[in-house]
Design a binder for these strands. Structure first.
Lengths: 194, 194, 194, 194
DNA sequence: TATGAATGAGAGTTCATTCAT
DNA sequence: AATGAATGAACTCTCATTCAT
């Protein structure tokens, strides 16, 4: 039952952070939304920042794990690339709440910046690992693979942000987005959006 | 002379926003840094948010203009692509302060989010325009070009953020980064960076 | 068994009050130290203040009783005086915890101030009674004896506080302190203390 | 004009601390009494504790200075003693506000305890110095003089507290109190009080 | 134009106390 | 008798903004 309230608080906070941003959201908003008393917040979190850090950590970790599980082996590099991009878009789509909070509203605290930095480091490592299996990048150095990895992350993140958050598109766009990003226009499945 | 003080305020604010973020920086910090009195701030700006909006607008507009001027026509698509990417990296490098402020610290105000959104819309248009000149994208639809444009923006922005802000590399890395991103490993000019 | 917990609470509270003062000590500190649950506190005490009042009353009453039992009759006034002072120092030494709590940390509640006031009234009466037996004070009025009594109390309390609490000296200093206070330097047993 | 408000705050605080104690007095009480805004408090003091520390320091320093100026040279030790005691009672009477605050209400903060400890150390030194001039204490060691000094301080403080604070007597009692404390009953000027 | 003391609404946080189990 | 999660009133403190000079 105790965990009930903690969960209420987290759900309420995520909703409010997404809607109005971290700084605009007051503890009093969160507890009202969660239906608990003001003091209850402090049973579960040391402070507002502590709450956000723990939520962000959990969400970002989820993304890292989800990306890691996307390991597939297909024939061509292009197929691998496509699947990687699609998988990443799926994961971002499922986690667009935290994506929106962090990208649109930011947070601005040393500690949380650290969480974010660590997150990017982790997914970069995951992507770099995947790239090593592609023939195309066979003779790339570690540093060069890192550049490629980050550029792919940026690509996916920006597209995900623009389509899932700004344009608020659904998961049915994922295939088309991935196809275009990878560069195969074949039989175009891409329909006008919004 | 009055403009002197306004400029002092802007420079002080940019420095502090970059260092500690928008929310952490107090008006009192800015005026102390700028060497003017507390009340003077309000002679030049309606509010703290108003100041940030105007600074952000100016900086982002500068980026848009700089990107637009990069229009050059070379023989191959790959050359065009490389030059576009390099140009974008240069521009981001020159403007890494605002890049850092917006990406690392975020903003958290509806109005400023609008500024940011409009900025991305503008540079997307610039990039899309440039892509139309590449043979490679001849039969892409507008929507498809938009995806490509955003994915390129994301690529450049993420790489610029990681190398110029996180790793704090200088402009001498630009060529190498651009080359790798575009995919030409030719005579590799890329050196290990730390 | 119930009384066990009550006693635990009292011991824990005394320790914490002495260490950090009444106001700084939280109920949660006391119950943690006592090894009981938060709610258990209220089975034994109406409130934090009620607890402190009852502890203080008990301790101070102990001091009063101890002082009363010191009644001895010796030949000279000086001997009586010395014994009275020594006895008082002993008592204060044994009760330095409450002495420290009340003198160093104060109290700050009307009700408890009353307890303290009543305590001084009581020991004043005890001392006054003792003084009546000394030839030296034969023709002193009641009011005058009261002044003498309070001045002796102040003397002993201040010395006890400085030596037992501030300098943290042990009971071996008592004789020397009493001798000096009374004014007999005879064969000086007093050693340098640090 | 700025100092006006600071002074208002100090006067209001002293009054309230005396009336209801340090812990019971809220910042909101102080500013209301002083007739300034809540935020104004923080222009002059870092916190409530900081305020009290600075007030206490000033008051206690005043007492030390006042006691130091009492240096007089009379014929007999008894005369010197009497004058010292009377002077001390006068000083305590003039400063009974801070005496009441510290003795009755206490404060309970490490930092302020330090101020108080330092105060006693200082007046002990003053008294010890004075005692050295008395023939009576010619062959007392430093340690022994310290005991005498503290016992005299305790005497005066307790009597001052009981008569000036508890019984609320005026300065006309000072002579009589001093006389009794010193031990001369001569032509008794002491009248029944209140 | 420039000042900076003053403001006060409103934020985050604390903690003695309660009560269903 | 014992628990400890939950409470919420009340606190201290912050800081963007104002305005008399």
């Amino acid at each position: 039952m105790g965990e009930d309230k903690k969960d209420n608080l987290i759900q309420a906070a995520l909703m409010l952070f997404e809607e109005q941003g971290y700084h605009t959201t007051k503890i009093s908003d969160i507890v009202r939304e969660a239906g608990v008393a003001q003091g209850t917040f402090y049973l579960y979190f040391k402070s507002k920042e502590d709450m956000f850090r723990s939520i962000a950590e959990a969400c970002l970790e989820e993304i890292v794990v989800a990306l890691q599980q996307g390991g597939v082996s297909k024939d061509t590099d292009e197929q691998k690339d496509y699947l990687m991009i699609r998988r990443a878009l799926e994961v971002y789509h499922e986690n667009k709440t935290i994506l929106k909070i962090i990208n649109r509203h930011g947070v601005g605290s040393q500690e949380i910046a650290g969480v974010s930095e660590a997150f990017y480091q982790q997914i970069m490592m995951v992507i770099k690992q995947a790239l090593r299996d592609e023939a195309m990048y066979a003779n790339y150095s570690e540093d060069q693979l890192e550049i490629i990895a980050f550029s792919k992350i940026g690509m996916v993140e920006m597209v995900a942000y623009q389509w899932f958050v700004v344009k608020n598109c659904g998961s049915e766009t994922i295939n088309a987005l991935a196809q275009i990003i990878v560069g195969d226009l074949g039989p175009c499945k891409f329909k006008a959006m919004e």
